[in-house]
Design a protein around this nucleic acid. Structure first.
Lengths: 200, 200, 200, 200
DNA sequence: GATGAATGAGCTTTCATTCAT
DNA sequence: GATGAATGAAAGCTCATTCAT
């Protein structure tokens, strides 16, 4: 059996268990059982429980980043890019529901119990958005007074909060495509009725 | 000494400790020490560790909701209301930093270890936003095709993500007022340059 | 119940268990059971398993040193002092058999697993011998060419080895008094027949 | 490669590792790595971890016994024999430092974790001393009132304690020859100044 | 009501040993 | 014979919770 097999089996099992119970309530023996290996085997592939979580961050976010970047490269228009990003992000919940749950939850926790860990992969991911915004500003498509540092967080936060909802109650009233369209739409043109005079 | 005194002392101590260590890594004895009471005393006021966290949610969010609702009542214009909400929300990080941290983190966790707990207070809080949006739509100020259920999440998520950042690295480049303005601005009129033709 | 009670109960239980199984094979739960306390209680009084062993060294050797010094002070003649020391040392095996076993065994081990621990109490104990030898040399009773640093080890080693035997097989052919006399005798006048010419 | 090669490689590796870490803290994988064999290979040559230790006792002490006996056979005078024994014993620390450490330490432990194991080789070794004493007494060189069973322990203990010191702090103030001479000297003629009247 | 010493279940992690290759 | 990945029992330690004072 190839090393990578066990490694992957454990990662996938951990995603399942972390999603079900959360990192702290998950027991190593749960993960081992889910992965159909012995408890000790896990320590042949990971240093400790935290290491499993970090590996999930690194490896799985890494894959997602690749996919998203590839999809965005197909587009020219920053406006389209944002919608593509939104659609991709929201699709995660459907396609990799448990992974989405883990990333959701532990992203907020990780800094508490792993003081030293800087989630560079996550930063890389969010920076895809600021790159799009920057490009839109260069093309004069986006307002120059928009702060990319704030806007990227706003856009990501909007998507993330939708994901959170869907992860909690997996019964979406709207489709992913609709929601992605709606969110990128609000982000692009706002909620204000165009016929209304701009506020002071 | 009134009963509520100890209760409050413990709540405030728990907020501090949960913020510092996270819920799971926090020990009851840490909270007891911080509150200057005996470990056992905590169990005179709370059923268990989870109960403390839930009480924080219920009581502290309750206070915030009251404040925000009061502030919003001063305004007539839904556009202003959104900015006021944003400013209020972001101010939390500055004024009650530790509480903000706890709400941030544990909001994502709580459903994992307290399956039965539905965070109604939180729902009530976010619904303030949908009420504003609804009002804006009634006044024909906001687009009718905006889905309030999505928009409220988008707006809240944007603010929440900014809070997350500030909570992590307490060195903000922009002031709360600026950021609140920027986020509500994006939400209201979008990032698109008005001189640019709307996309197809 | 006084704090010192539990502390002492655990120390005495640990001596019993360490003597029976050795430090490494002894389980915390064995000690707890022997002391009739819960496993966790041990950690209220000691930091960890090593800490128990070190406490045994420090506290119990401390008591012994006091006793020996007191007994030796009664004597004027360094030759008598050595015999008193020998009798005291060997009595340990009879009176505190399990303690003797632990000191015996773990003295050799301790430096392996507690690199940083310098057994100052033990050094203090052995230095009682060199003080006696020194005194004997000052009084011209003992040969000047005897190296106190070597002689104290020789004397202690002789006693220690006898203890080891008795600890192993608790059926002594000779009494403590006889053996103490014999060992201090050999140490004082040697094994050589006085009628025999000294060797070259 | 002959079978005995691997056997010897493992024994020698085990001596190194046991000396460095002690028996209990030593891992089989440490020994395997030191011996440059696979973990499993060790179990082709030894039944278990204890078996390695016992083999060290048996085989290595066996070699030493042979050497010492050979050296002593060269001498006629029991007084010389004792000094030769002392020199040989102390030389061990210098020549086979790690082996000396293991014998030192684990000799005291072994009976604890291997109840059934009687260290006959060790007994054989110490009995060399009693044979010398016996011979000395037969030759009327040594006092008849010296108990060989006590004297052999006293002599061995003195040497052993010196070894213990040297093993711990490898910076000897005195040479092996000096120390061997001093110890056998004390053992033979005692520490008492001959010009002093014998004690009562 | 308040205390904090005591409890013991439950967890992560280690490592001697096995066995399919 | 040789390997080393896999096993799983075992143990040290933590800490929420209890309860006698």
């Amino acid at each position: 059996m190839r090393t990578s097999d066990k490694h992957q089996k454990i990662i996938q099992a951990a995603i399942k268990v972390f999603a079900r119970k959360g990192f702290f309530s998950a027991r190593i023996s749960d993960i081992a059982k889910e992965a159909r290996v012995a408890d000790g085997t896990i320590y042949l592939y990971f240093n400790n429980k935290y290491d499993i979580l970090i590996s999930i961050f690194e490896e799985e976010i890494g894959k997602i980043i690749l996919q998203v970047k590839l999809a965005i490269e197909q587009e020219d228009d920053p406006r389209q890019m944002l919608e593509v990003f939104a659609r991709h992000h929201l699709s995660l919940v459907e396609e990799k529901r448990e992974l989405a749950e883990v990333l959701q939850m532990e992203l907020r926790q990780s800094n508490k119990f792993m003081k030293e860990y800087r989630n560079t992969k996550f930063i890389e991911y969010v920076d895809i958005i600021s790159a799009i915004i920057h490009k839109g500003q260069e093309m004069k498509l986006f307002r120059a007074d928009v702060l990319p540092g704030v806007a990227k967080r706003a856009f990501f936060g909007a998507l993330d909060e939708m994901s959170r909802l869907w992860v909690l109650s997996p019964d979406p009233t709207y489709t992913i495509a609709e929601t992605a369209k709606q969110i990128s739409d609000i982000f692009l043109v706002g909620v204000i009725n165009k016929n209304t005079p701009a506020r002071a």
